[in-house]
Design a protein around this nucleic acid. Structure first.
Lengths: 202, 202
DNA sequence: TGTATTTTGTTGCAGATGTATTATAACCAG
DNA sequence: CTGGTTATAATACATCTGCAACAAAATACA
């Protein structure tokens, strides 16, 4: 029997190297050799874990979707205190925005992949998965905000959830091209205002 | 004296070839040879107009910013009829969204360039220019919506303009990954609701 | 300890890519 | 028509890229 390696961990390590390169050089610079250098492996090792580069990119993007999706689901499960529900939800929403260095990197990674998905049909499904997950999350937030007395099958709330989702995406983009402190503060204000407004109308 | 060619037209023609490739294959596929083939020129001709590929990409992105900026400025200049001001503005805003094939292509082009700008400092300024132009446009729309009696130096309206800007960006992204008819209709609803809501609060 | 089996590292190769160089063709003033 | 200038085209070349092939090392079990 040969050396035993946790193949899944290995694949994740390689995928994270792809993330790093995508975040600060662009996905097109994530060549096999660059990835190998980034995670301190040889080209042969990468090839052992991923037959082709396309497979590697798919896996790297899928892993992003998985991580974010489970994180969103976990957040949904949290109980809200009744008192400051609006503030709690605003905080929850802000956690999805690139307001610190770590989230900014994640957002840059996602921007690279989702743009690549526009011209790479093999990746398109992951974009759609991510959008579904985000929209479910936003819908859940809006329902929580509106209180349990609101109708479950309201068309209006679905549109408001889409509004929220698009707003978060747009704010993310704006923060990526201008990550200044001022912009961050304004972004937080916008999210707070949105939540406030929603809470008021009901 | 030699053959005289309208150099500016030539450069634009080449830049548009870059746009085409970026829109349906991704900016990284816009190699010199691919661009030459796309616009029916030879590699040498491209090189005559652009010394390096980087210069070509910069020009192609700058041209997008110029076009959109002038278009937005033109739109701002139009007079609004007093009667259906909200509807008129909603229509104006929808014109910035990829609700038809032509705008969808433009949005794909812009997505490619703005993502590239995240990891290419030479392009970052164009992203910021575009954002400024869009935000001015949104601010102008909000002011028009609120009527002339609203204070000119309101911090709130600036935030609302940023909200609108981010919303448009996010809606654009969502439409690119799901350009279905249903999604387009929902997008229009969201824009109309936003404008309505803004008009009501004042 | 031996060895079969897997992992890892290196190298080779065909094709793509950016760009410099060179040669040809087109054009207009004289 | 012609000469000189420029536009266009073709090619050359060094580098990069994905991937395959192979060699070397490592390890778990007999």
């Amino acid at each position: 029997m040969p050396k035993l390696v946790n193949e899944e961990k290995r694949r994740e390590r390689i995928a994270k190297a792809v993330w790093n390169i995508a975040a600060d050089q662009g996905l097109e610079r994530a060549t096999i050799r660059a990835v190998a250098a980034e995670c301190g492996l040889s080209v042969g090792s990468i090839q052992h874990s991923f037959r082709t580069q396309e497979e590697l990119k798919r896996f790297a993007m899928e892993l992003v979707v998985q991580r974010v999706t489970t994180r969103l689901n976990d957040a949904e499960g949290l109980p809200f205190r009744a008192g400051d529900k609006a503030a709690a939800i605003a905080g929850l929403l802000m956690e999805t925005l690139p307001l610190d260095a770590e989230r900014e990197k994640e957002a840059r990674i996602w921007a690279a992949f989702s743009t690549a998905a526009l011209t790479d049909e093999g990746l398109g499904n992951y974009s759609r998965q991510m959008n579904s997950a985000l929209e479910r999350f936003c819908l859940r937030c809006m329902q929580e905000l509106n209180g349990p007395e609101s109708p479950k099958e309201d068309c209006g709330i679905r549109l408001e959830a889409m509004h929220l989702h698009s707003l978060l995406d747009g704010l993310t983009l704006a923060l990526l091209t201008d990550p200044s402190h001022a912009r961050r503060q304004e972004t937080k204000c916008i999210v707070r205002n949105f939540v406030e407004q929603c809470a008021k109308t009901r």
